[in-house]
């Protein structure tokens, strides 16, 4: 038996891990060809590279295909209930701020049934990393449309004549919810995804990463139009902090015409790099503007939209407790009970 205190802080050199250290003995049960395999593979590599003690890492998930993620990562893991992972993760992190807490979720889990928790976790800036596997479909329940399904999507399950509800934009929503780290990548962009996950891990505060993920059973090729190799360069713009928005192998860029972004060709009508929007991760208004750019009218932005350091909920709470203890002293149970109007009976 040990005293039930929380683990002590002590700066430690990074652990040496390999990807294998983050694999479990559980058989991975996603459909063959699912984009989730690629994400898991990248995540396990990133976790190994971080060198953060794996016993202090917690994977939390909700319900859906993506939410099987914790079973396949050899850290502490909690496969919770539909939509509630950000709230559970908030409790884990508040109870022990030394833990590194990751949430694996999907478009239905995070944005439909769990929309409220998603919004509030982000606005509180609780130090958790939310990986949203966005396949724009309900996979585990076999193919109903989701809150990110493109308007008019026809599927034979619940939208045989096409969806009639407007999808939402997870990046815009997260920015509007005051998320301090917001990024997007794609399951098959291994290198990009790896960089983004590392940055998210380093970020103190809520980090939100939307990952376009192909569901090859119910919504196959949903992103192929801009992620397939032949189109990638032309139909994606990679966001780099401090760099102009250039794509199509340096031939095209995005500039602002008043408040309206537009695609321009460099060299045409005297347009140079200087005319283009320069990405600034510390400007949430710009981040929001970029979140509205979508294929096919624009190249799909990939990368970090926003990355700002703000005090996190867990930091604020710990500091407040420390301040109160400093001012009032450690709570004394006897004094708490023996208080108010009292009387003695002899």
């Amino acid at each position: 038996m040990v005293a039930p205190s929380q683990p002590q802080t002590s700066p430690q050199p990074p652990r040496k891990y390999t990807k294998i250290d983050f694999q479990t003995d559980q058989e991975v049960r996603w459909c063959p060809g699912c984009g989730d395999y690629a994400i898991l593979n990248v995540a396990q590599q990133v976790f190994a590279q971080l060198g953060f003690p794996k016993e202090k890492m917690v994977m939390v998930s909700g319900i859906g295909c993506s939410s099987r993620f914790p079973y396949y990562v050899n850290t502490y893991g909690f496969h919770t209930i539909h939509g509630r992972a950000p709230a559970v993760a908030t409790g884990v992190k508040l109870a022990n701020p030394e833990l590194q807490v990751w949430v694996a979720t999907g478009d239905g889990d995070a944005l439909s049934i769990g929309g409220n928790h998603f919004m509030h976790a982000l606005r509180r800036n609780i130090d958790i990393k939310i990986l949203l596997f966005n396949n724009r479909i309900y996979g585990l329940t076999k193919g109903q449309y989701s809150p990110t399904s493109v308007l008019g999507t026809i599927n034979d399950k619940t939208a045989p004549f096409g969806t009639v509800d407007q999808p939402l934009n997870p990046i815009s929503l997260s920015l509007a919810s005051e998320a301090t780290f917001v990024a997007r990548s794609v399951d098959v962009y291994a290198k990009r995804l790896m960089d983004i996950l590392k940055k998210a891990a380093e970020h103190k505060g809520s980090a939100f990463i939307e990952i376009y993920q192909n569901c090859n059973i119910y919504n196959d090729k949903a992103f192929d139009d801009f992620t397939d190799r032949p189109f990638r360069d032309d139909r994606n713009v990679m966001l780099e902090h401090g760099k102009p928005l250039i794509f199509a192998q340096g031939k095209k860029g995005i500039r602002l015409n008043g408040l309206k972004p537009e695609v321009v060709t460099l060299g045409e009508n005297g347009i140079t790099e200087k005319d283009l929007i320069v990405h600034d991760e510390h400007n949430p208004s710009l981040a929001y503007l970029l979140s509205r750019l979508n294929h096919p009218n624009f190249p799909e932005p990939i990368g970090v939209f926003r990355n700002d350091r703000m005090p996190s909920l867990d930091e604020r709470l710990e500091n407040q407790i420390a301040d109160v203890k400093k001012a009032k002293g450690e709570g004394d149970l006897r004094k708490l009970l023996f208080a108010g109007d009292m009387w003695e009976v002899k």
């Binding site: 039930p4 939390v60 409790g91 109870a95």
Partner: peptide
């Protein structure tokens, strides 16, 4: 659910 998360964390 936050309470359950906190319980998981001890």
């Amino acid at each position: 659910t936050a309470a359950i998360g906190a319980s998981f964390a001890g």
